[in-house]
Nucleic acid binder design. Sequence first.
DNA 1: CTCAGCGTGCAATAAAATTGCACGGATGCG
DNA 2: CGCATCCGTGCAATTTTATTGCACGCTGAG
Lengths: 151, 151
Amino acid sequence: MDRIDRKLLNLLQRDASRTNAHMAEEVGLSPSSCLRRIRRLRQVGVIDRIVAILNPAKAGRRLRAVVTVELKLHGEPNTRQFLELAAREEAVTQAHAVTGEVDAILMLRLRDMEEYDALCHRLFQGRTNVARYWTMMVIRTAKDETAIPLE
Amino acid sequence: MDRIDRKLLNLLQRDASRTNAHMAEEVGLSPSSCLRRIRRLRQVGVIDRIVAILNPAKAGRRLRAVVTVELKLHGEPNTRQFLELAAREEAVTQAHAVTGEVDAILMLRLRDMEEYDALCHRLFQGRTNVARYWTMMVIRTAKDETAIPLE
DNA sequence: CTCAGCGTGCAATAAAATTGCACGGATGCG
DNA sequence: CGCATCCGTGCAATTTTATTGCACGCTGAG
């Protein structure tokens, strides 16, 4: 992992749709060397995958929310069980166990409030292990990066 | 946006590195038609961009955290100013203004606690507009999707 | 029923990725 | 200090893939 690798990864994290020849030029390498480096980065797993990022509004998911969750029964097996339940929900894009005043945190992508309501019923009400939960609806997003900063 | 478009988008959201011919086969279309559909989806902006997703551990960012922030001065211009400050930080991957008990929420990708410490000093201490903040370190991630579910 | 419009498949063409090969700098060893 | 080895590189040939022009068929409107 030298300077050229990091440069390549930064390019790929912003736009992986460019041609190999184009990226080779950006980093000052021949197309073949560039290709071999990228292949190696995928091989060793630094690059996990290449994906398309959709426009949420145009994909019909305008609403975004963060929910912190306090469980009734804490501890490993209970937390795990809740997270697995949450992870099965389409609208849940991220599910984490966390330190702090709550046990878990969920990131949601919602079509509308109706979907939010239905999700709350399934995950937080009824016979679930949830003691309390706090919802923060996203008003405005100033930054939203999939890229991981490199040294 | 018909059933084939959604199928294509779902494929692309998981793996955009496949060849066009391969995806055409998956959705039951000829390569040319498939290509024209994908091009159209990019054209109209449903597909925002194609990016590489790195393995955080192998990229040297093992630590992940969520920070909720309460500001001293609330209201639009103050919130905006804080978010812009936060957005300039490399380690901040997401910065949102939210409803609820706090004003903003940040998602962090950290190398180590030293970086966390330094970030807190810059964003939360000194002459900033932050009244209080709560950090939730991610212990375990059960789900982490970039994909947006389609109808 | 007829016609226009749109999306499709096929085949040809253009572009891009991939590979084999030889060179050159860096490293380790005598 | 010189020599051999190894790794990454660039070039050119080859293979694979994307792209385009064109004609067909389905669908809906008149």
